[in-house]
Structures are given as C-alpha cells and as structure tokens.
Amino acid sequence: MDQENVSATLTVAVPAARVFAVLADPTAHSAIDGTGWVREAVDRAPLTEVGQVFRMDMYHSNHPNGDYQVANQVQVCDPPRALGWLTGQEKDDGRLEFGGWLWRYDLAPLGPSETAVTLTYDWSAVPQAIREYIHFPPFGPEHLSNSLRHLAGLVSGG
C-alpha cells in the first residue's frame, strides 16, 4: 500500500457543533471506537486547545501487557470544524513520546442540522523502527466506517 492514510465519511443529521462536542469529550471515545481497544478516559476534561494531553486506558491482546495507557496530544482544534490528535505514551520520566500516527475528524456543515464527518487515520510520520513491529493500519478497512456509525448513534441520541 503506497497510501499512508485511510479515511471514511458519513453524513449525520445533527449540527456540526453537536458532533464536535461529542468528539471533544474523551469519555465518549470508548463508545465511538467500537473495537474494545479504547477503554476509559483517564483525563476527562473536554478537548479545547492544541497541545492539550489526554490519556486513555486501553486494551489489546497483542500488547505485551494487554492493558496499557496512551497519551494523546491535540494537534488540531478548530471548533466546530476539526479535531485531531497524535497517540503516544508517557515514559517513566514523564516525557511524552509519540508514534507518528494521527486521528483526525473533519466536520463539514451541510446546512443548519446536517454534517459530513470525515475520520482520517494517518500514519505517514511513523518511523521505520515502529513499522518493524506494528503493521499499519493496525485494524481492518471497516473500522473507520464502524466508528463513524457509533459516533452517529451518540450524536443523534440513539
């Protein structure tokens, strides 16, 4: 695969501000994800600015510990149009180290009560050392579409 990102788009019948508010709430991320990997928000404050760090408890059967924690750093915060973050980890000395992959949501209002939501997973900045032990993308092609359907259910109250 030459492309180093994947994306999916879904139109939801709610205003962009409502979609952004749900995405900016780390406590909603486990319900949006749908893989069972994202477990619970450690940092529960809404995402409001570039540089903000929020940690999530995770689980993956291929991870050496099974349960682990990621530290995400907001890279894009443009309410109600875009929100994105890099995923990494906090080292023992408190330093943050990112793997180079970015999750990004772009919201395009299609009127007062309809929004096109595009979710992009971009691994173009992942260094070769990480690519040697993690296959990218680390999920099947249906994951982004499933995640957007979960988001649609949350934002529409269903």
Rank of each mutant, 00 (worst) to 15 (best):
W37L: 06
S7K: 14
D33G: 11
N65K: 13
T35Y: 05
H29G: 04
I32Y: 03
V74F: 01
N5Y: 15
N5C: 12
M58F: 05
C77E: 02
N72K: 06
Y68A: 10
P64E: 14
Q73W: 08
V38E: 07
V53D: 05
A28Y: 02
A45N: 09
T9R: 10
A24T: 10
N72V: 02
V19M: 00
Y68N: 10
V76E: 14
A21Y: 04
A13N: 15
A71N: 02
T35M: 14
P15G: 06
G66F: 10
C77G: 04
V76P: 04
T9K: 07
A13T: 12
N5F: 15
N62V: 13
N5M: 13
V70K: 00
S7E: 15
P15Q: 06
A8V: 08
A17N: 06
E40P: 01
R55L: 11
P46K: 11
T35G: 06
V76K: 06
N62K: 13
F54W: 08
T9P: 02
Y59E: 11
V19H: 00
G36K: 08
A71V: 02
H63R: 00
T27V: 14
R39W: 03
V12K: 02
Q52D: 08
A8E: 13
V76N: 04
E40V: 03
N5I: 07
N72L: 06
A41C: 08
V38R: 08
Q69L: 04
D43F: 03
D78S: 12
Q52G: 08
M56Y: 04
Q75R: 13
M56P: 05
V74K: 01
F20P: 03
V38D: 07
M58V: 09
I32N: 04
T11P: 08
D67P: 07
T35Q: 10
A8R: 12
S7C: 10
T11S: 15
V6M: 14
M56H: 06
R44A: 15
V6L: 13
V14N: 05
H63V: 02
P15I: 05
V19N: 01
V42Q: 01
T35D: 10
E49R: 15
T48Q: 09
E40F: 02
G66P: 07
H63N: 03
V22F: 02
D67G: 09
Y68H: 14
